[in-house]
C-alpha cells in the first residue's frame, strides 16, 4: 500500500489526461464538422459565388437567377437543412475547437502553425460576416424570395456604404481562404493525402482554387459597385426564368 505512490512517479492526478480509449462520441461530432465544411457548406459557397457572377450581366439577369433558385422544389427546406443548420453547426463547433486549442505561434512560428491559426481567424470572420449577411439580405428589408426583382438594388444599397463594402471584401477573401485550406485539411485528415508530396501538390491545387474562387467572388461584388449598373432600379421585371445574354 505504502509503495503504491512513489513521489517521483505520481499518478496522473494533474496535467493532460490519457486517451479515453474507445470512449465518447467526439470522433463523430468532429468528423461531422469536417464533412459539413465541404458538403454542403463548401458546395453552397461555390454555387453562391457562381450565382453572384450573374450580377455582372446586370440587374435583370441577377433577378432571374434569384428567381430560379427560389423556384427550386422545397426551397425553404433545402435552405434550412443544407445551408443554415450546417453553417450554424460548423461555426459553433468550430468555435468550440478553437477555444480548446492553445496556439503557440510565438515559440513555433512555422508555416503549418500559421495556417492553423489563420484557419481559426478566417473562420471567425466568416461566422460574423455570414451572420450579418444572412440577417440583412435574407431576413431583413424587402424579402427577396418573394421579390427577386428587388435583389440587385438591395445588395447595391448595402454595398454603397464603404465600411460595409470593405467588410464584404475582407470576408470574401477570408471565406475563400478558409474553404481552400479547409479542403486541404480535409484531404490530410481523412487520409486522402497521406504523403508529404501529395499534400504539397494538393496544397498548390487548393491555393489555385481558393484564389480563383476569391477572384470570382470579388468580381461578383464589383458588379454591384461598378459604374455600369449605378443606381439600379429598385425593382426589375423578371419575365423569363433564365435569360441568356440580354
Amino acid at each position: 500500500m505504502a509503495t503504491a505512490n512513489h513521489p517521483a512517479a505520481p499518478k496522473l492526478s494533474t496535467g493532460v489526461q490519457p486517451l479515453r480509449a474507445a470512449k465518447g462520441s467526439s470522433f463523430l461530432w468532429r468528423k461531422l464538422h469536417s464533412l459539413l465544411g465541404i458538403i454542403p457548406i463548401g458546395a453552397f459557397l461555390v454555387e453562391h459565388l457562381l450565382s453572384n457572377f450573374e450580377a455582372l450581366k446586370g440587374p435583370a439577369a441577377y433577378a432571374a437567377q434569384v428567381k430560379f433558385l427560389n423556384s427550386l422544389p422545397l426551397v425553404r427546406v433545402l435552405e434550412w437543412t443544407f445551408i443554415f443548420l450546417p453553417i450554424a453547426y460548423h461555426a459553433i463547433y468550430g468555435l468550440y475547437i478553437w477555444f480548446r486549442g492553445k496556439s503557440n505561434i510565438v515559440y513555433y512560428p512555422w508555416a503549418g502553425n500559421w495556417m492553423y491559426l489563420a484557419q481559426r481567424w478566417t473562420g471567425l470572420v466568416a461566422f460574423l460576416y455570414i451572420g450579418y449577411h444572412v440577417a440583412t439580405q435574407r431576413f431583413l428589408g424587402v424579402s427577396l424570395p418573394e421579390n427577386p426583382g428587388a435583389s440587385f438594388h438591395k445588395v447595391q444599397a448595402e454595398l454603397s456604404n464603404p465600411v460595409i463594402l470593405a467588410f464584404y471584401v475582407i470576408a470574401m477573401i477570408a471565406i475563400c481562404w478558409h474553404f481552400a485550406y479547409g479542403i486541404w485539411l480535409f484531404a490530410a485528415k481523412w487520409g486522402i493525402t497521406p504523403g508529404v508530396k501529395s499534400r504539397k501538390r494538393f496544397g498548390y491545387l487548393c491555393a489555385a482554387f481558393g484564389l480563383a474562387l476569391a477572384i470570382m467572388g470579388l468580381a461578383g461584388i464589383w458588379a454591384f459597385v461598378s459604374p455600369q449598373y449605378k443606381n439600379a432600379p429598385e425593382n426589375v421585371q423578371v419575365t423569363t426564368l433564365v435569360e441568356p445574354g440580354r
Binding site: P18, G24, S26, F27, K31, W110
Partner: peptide
C-alpha cells in the same frame, strides 16, 4: 483512437 482525445483532435498544425 476514436475515443475522446483521439486522432480526431489533431488540427494538422504540423508542429
Amino acid at each position: 483512437l476514436a475515443g475522446d482525445g483521439g486522432v480526431q483532435e489533431c488540427g494538422f498544425a504540423q508542429n
